[in-house]
Amino acid sequence: MSTPAGPLDYTRRWSLRLTVAAALLFLYVPLLVMMAFSFNDSTRIIRWEGFSTRWYESVWQNTALIEAFTNSMVIAFSATLLATAIGTGLAICLWRFRFPGKTLVEAVNGLPIVIPEISLGVAMMIFFKQINWPSDLAWPLNLLPIIIAHVAFAFPFVTLVVRARLTGFDRSLEEAAFDLGAGMGLFLRDILLPYLKPALIAGALLAFTLSLDDFVITYFVSEVGSTTLPVKIYSQLRFKVQPDINAAFTVLIVLTASIAIAAAFILNTMQKKNKS
């Protein structure tokens, strides 16, 4: 650890560390404010009135909020999985094959990114009407239209990220693999996907974030009884965003962060043990 920082040890350069610290501060200060206010003994989010855990108790009892939260999670996880798979598949096809109209496909892929949410939402609402999508499915099947809509607008983001990583792929690896008799499946599994892993993680995180945050499109395609967290929050805006929303997000963030940090440490110690 005491070795002097090498020229490429960017993580150990003070100038960079400071920049990153400043960026993280920028990202986290509002979040910490939100977390602090989730303990505020007031119905508003603006002024501090004293410490209280009442909003956490209220989250616990608020079945409608828990239902919306569960719906959002189910949708986000399913949509992320599908969007990552489809987006990656499309990116690989666009990279691997040359075909007429390829530029067109790429441009069309970008459409869901550009078309304003409200246009996309109304278009999808009409689409589900046109194909006579059944409207009385049981949970969680009633979430399907939302999941489909989320996949549709999220996968192009995945494609873009994966495409960007593929452009630097050393094609000689591919040739070598095929020369050695590997089939397409083996090549994908053992060479391409491991190489794409960081892009898959990044794309999945992006899709998850987009899905979790979407209001407009969700609103227009949702069936009766499939309220999501953003729909609930935007609908509260007419009066005020309820403080238990802050509490719910604090739980989500703290829980995710703890699980991730714990997982990283466990993996770390396991690796150390394996080495020794």
Partner: peptide
Amino acid sequence: RYDLYADNAELFARLRE
């Protein structure tokens, strides 16, 4: 079942279709 909308214009757009 108590479902939610966020503004009147959205309600109108939703029901018109």
